[in-house]
């Protein structure tokens, strides 16, 4: 059974059709890419999946269950995490606190326990903190646990954001342009990180990316989106030579290599 199924999705913003007859299956363990020119509707699709928009038409199934219409935090609680194009950390709190708060879906205590500071509160706080620390340890971020995210270099911030998404224990992780604004050496580290995460956590990844180096070297399959429609799907080498893709990116009189 595919991890994520999107069936006949149409989405309108007023009179504008942002997504057109969008169909997609992502199998378990896959590392899928989504590319397309600016304004093609890539982020809209991520926003549909993560629950920010409810699709005008069509179904979204995550692990066989419909998720269209759920609030984003409910979608996330089912094991579908995502990161953002522009890094969105909670900058008034430390890296460790960031990784604790993202476990809100599985707190194990409520307001009353907090006020009473009873055993359930103490034990769950310990567990949450331990999970966060373990993840920081694995990701080699332990030294930055008490730093504020905004004070970290960009590449590390991205690493922390991915770490925060991993606290959800996701089955499917959506990465929205993880390499945006990175220098070449950061990008190499990122490619390594993405591959490593997939193997280590046994999860399915779906990423939007503009850096062809990342897409071509990381993804096993790529979907190409233009004007809200899928225009090509296939392995990286197939996509690279697909005339429709080249046309979408470079226009009619395009040069032969993208």
């Amino acid at each position: 059974m595919p991890v994520l199924q999107m069936r006949k999705i149409n989405h309108f913003f007023g009179g504008l059709q942002a997504v057109r007859h969008f169909n997609l299956n992502i199998e378990e363990g896959e590392l899928r890419g989504l590319i397309g020119p600016n304004g093609a509707g890539k982020t809209t699709i991520f926003n549909l999946v993560s629950g920010f928009y409810r699709p005008t038409e069509g179904d979204i199934l995550f692990q066989g269950k419909p998720i269209a219409g759920l609030r984003p935090h409910q979608v996330t609680a089912r094991g579908l995490a995502r990161t953002f194009q522009n890094i969105r950390m909670w900058n008034s709190m430390t890296v460790l606190e960031n990784l604790c708060i993202s476990q809100h879906f599985d707190m194990g205590y409520g307001l009353l326990d907090t006020i009473l500071a009873n055993r359930r509160f103490v034990e769950n706080e310990k567990r949450i903190r331990k999970t966060a620390m373990e993840l920081l340890e694995i990701l080699d971020l332990r030294d930055y646990a008490n730093e504020y995210p905004k004070n970290l270099p960009y590449g590390l911030q991205r690493r922390v954001e991915i770490g925060r998404a991993l606290t959800i224990k996701p089955k499917l992780l959506l990465l929205d342009e993880p390499a945006a604004g990175m220098n070449p050496s950061d990008i190499d580290k990122l490619i390594e990180l993405i591959r490593w995460i997939r193997d280590q956590f046994k999860l399915t990844l779906w990423l939007i990316e503009h850096q062809m180096k990342v897409v071509m070297s990381v993804c096993e399959a790529i979907s190409v989106l233009d004007f809200g429609e899928i225009i090509a799907e296939g392995r990286p080498d197939e996509i690279r030579n697909n005339p429709r893709v080249i046309k979408a990116y470079l226009g009619d009189e395009g040069i032969t290599h993208a």
Binding site: H73, W90, S92, S102, M107
Partner: peptide
Amino acid sequence: TFGKGVVAVRDDEIAAEIM
């Protein structure tokens, strides 16, 4: 951690909702 969810809403509500 429960109450810091409120601070997360202040810092970045969209990130809070998605996390």
